[in-house]
Design a protein around this nucleic acid. Structure first.
Lengths: 206, 206
DNA sequence: TAGATTGTTAATCGATTAACAATC
DNA sequence: TAGATTGTTAATCGATTAACAATC
């Protein structure tokens, strides 16, 4: 059961399950079932049981899953029971908004360094961070052992920034720039472009 | 070839193709091929040809696709050759950032109304908008015929907000609240939660 | 013409679902 | 015990890829 024979599509659903479990816990529930989870998430109960079974038997026949227990197991599988440090590249409109967003730290992802190339941004404060020159990024990333970065620079700079931070040791990139990145196979990239989601829905309108 | 027998996963890739075509045009290219597009996007050329063939034959054997033509065709298929009006519900940290983001208007999505329930936010300006009471949302949505909304309220309010705006005629929702929404089958929902993307990558780290 | 690339068919691959024995 | 729900197997479903005739 080595981690690499588990399909990525299964991994992509685990955070969704985790989020639902945290919500159920908040609402005061102690146990749940694949059926209840599936109903909340619009997913079949069979799929939820199958997905979870890749990692172990977390439930009990007849009674279902203990929410606290399953939540901790999923946190460990996803490696989010620990805290992670994040470097943010780009402090324009989008980068600043990302830097100020509280949802990251609340869930264990801490933006600890912000970089930009523009001389009139360097040295300025964003929230509690001082914007550092982008040329310092490789050294900071290396010294602090940072593995996760977010890219919020213009599309035409994104590939070059990616190459630079990957060379410094980054293994996971959340890319807000509207462009596909070419990266080595051991580096993971996720994309956020809200306009793509809107364009996907307009197809069905009118 | 009615639009409803085309798999949603095909539709979800069209905006990605469109974005790549716009970039190629910007770079001064006039023609491209499924092979070139596939290389840029990390998708097989066969898949690109198959996806496009659902909507017509846009290319020429031997030479490939004229970028300008294919781009216009995709814009029409996706219904993004026109402009769309959007209502934004929630003017907290996240909602304000969304309201100020320029990337929407640049690509034809115009946020024209912002709503919030908090008395100390109502009446304040965000960029060029005045925040309106959320109780006015149904009337505004109905009068202006708004079909697309973005939700940026706390998780525990999101379902109730969704129900309200759907009753007023909204058919597409971009949901920034970290919770699954239950909606009628003719309403489309897309989700944005950057933390989910991060949690999906930490699985592979260390 | 010779080379290149499309659009499409058939084959392969992988993911989802149905069903049920095991068991709490 | 009787009812409920898991974990897992086998069947189904759907998506991707390989291959190639058509043709620019």
């Amino acid at each position: 059961m080595s981690s690499h024979d588990i399909p990525d599509i299964v991994i992509s659903r685990l955070p969704v399950y985790l989020r639902a479990l945290e919500r159920l816990a908040q609402e005061g529930h102690e146990v749940t079932s694949s059926h209840e989870l599936g109903k909340r998430l619009g997913i079949s109960s069979a799929q939820i049981r199958k997905d979870l079974s890749h990692f172990g038997g977390f439930g009990k026949q007849g009674t279902g899953y203990r929410i606290g227990f399953l939540r901790e197991q999923l946190r460990q599988v996803l490696k989010v029971e620990r805290d992670w440090e994040i470097a943010l590249i780009g402090a324009g409109d989008l980068g600043s908004a990302v830097a100020r967003y509280r949802g990251f730290a609340e869930r264990g992802f801490h933006v600890t360094s912000v970089f930009d190339s523009s001389p009139d941004k360097i040295g300025r404060q964003i929230g509690s961070f001082k914007i550092q020159p982008i040329t310092d990024a490789p050294q900071v990333i290396r010294e602090r052992g940072i593995k996760i970065a977010m890219i919020a620079v213009p599309a035409e700079k994104a590939q070059e920034v990616a190459d630079m931070i990957i060379a410094a040791g980054v293994k996971a990139i959340l890319n807000y720039a509207p462009i596909n990145l070419n990266v080595p196979p051991d580096v993971h990239v996720q994309y956020i472009d809200p306009v793509l989601h809107l364009q996907r829905m307009t197809y069905y309108l009118v």
